[in-house]
Computed example of a mutant assay.
Amino acid sequence: MSVFPVYDIARNICGDKAFPFFVIPAGADPHTFEPLPSVASELRNVSLFIGVTREFDGWIERYLPERAVRRYLISPDAGSTHTANPHIWLSVRQAEKIAASIARSLEMVDAANIGYYRKNLAAYLNKLNELDKTIAGLFKNTRSTSFIQWHEAWNYLAADYNLTIAGTVQREGSDRASVRSIKEIVDRAKRDRVRVIVVSLNAEIKAALVLANEIRGTVVRLDGIGDPDSDDRSNYIKLMLYNAQTLAAALR
């Protein structure tokens, strides 16, 4: 796996029958990361690689052995030129599909343990279902349901809980926003009284603070990657609960 959240979902399915690992460490930018030689060497022993999209983490394939089975969580539509938003793990409801996809992939390469993987999948899906209910409750009575996102990462979360993204400053695959797009975001925020700007946990926020001052809003840091060494984001369920609690508090 490339990112920690997908890895954490996988290890709940694998149990002690497989040994997953993730490539991109906490705090790194998945879009620009290059693995250390030690990680590249470890990738040469992989038998199953589960990526998100070819555009997002397909670069890992060049480090894999020929024998490795390759699976992607998002497959492009035939004939489509649109680049899919890769951040599906930031939706608990999509995470249920991720878990099922991982289980199917494991069954393909390790048929002897199909029953084991399916049992683990069922148990983990129950946990995700409870998490989904908890998060839905957090957003049920917020004063506002709209926010601006700096990076195009939170679309899936917003869709799950009927939240509105009032603007995206930096689109997927784009280095910077145009002056015109920033003006449109500011105008909409003022018109609709949007007061929350979401940025990544480790992002430079100088520009976001300028925008927040313009709309009389606040900057909120969410974590799209997680951190196995943190107390509150050390697994997927904790990560999503942290993000939901942080965003819901800002929207109240």
Rank of each mutant, 00 (worst) to 15 (best):
F4Y: 15
A10F: 07
A10V: 09
R11A: 03
N12L: 12
G15C: 09
F21P: 10
I24C: 06
A26K: 14
G27T: 04
G27Y: 04
G27H: 06
D29I: 00
T32G: 02
F33M: 06
F33T: 07
E34Y: 07
P35D: 00
S47D: 14
V52T: 15
E55Q: 11
E55T: 10
R62K: 15
L64G: 11
R67Y: 08
V69C: 09
D77G: 11
G79M: 14
T83R: 12
W89C: 08
L90R: 01
S91T: 02
Q94I: 04
E96L: 04
L106K: 05
M108L: 15
D110K: 12
N113W: 11
I114V: 14
L125D: 15
L128Q: 04
L128N: 03
N129A: 08
N129S: 13
E130H: 09
D132S: 10
K133C: 05
K133E: 13
K133N: 10
A136I: 02
G137A: 14
K140P: 00
T142P: 01
R143K: 15
H151V: 01
N155V: 00
A158G: 03
A159M: 11
D160N: 13
Y161D: 03
N162C: 02
T168W: 02
R171N: 10
E172D: 08
D175G: 15
A177Y: 00
R180W: 05
K183T: 08
R193G: 02
V194Q: 04
R195L: 13
V196K: 00
A203L: 04
I205L: 01
K206Q: 10
A208W: 04
L211A: 01
T218G: 01
T218W: 00
V220F: 02
L222N: 01
G224W: 04
D227H: 04
P228R: 09
S230Y: 10
S230F: 09
S230N: 08
D232V: 06
R233P: 13
R233E: 12
S234T: 06
Y236P: 05
N243D: 08
T246S: 09
A250C: 10
R252M: 13
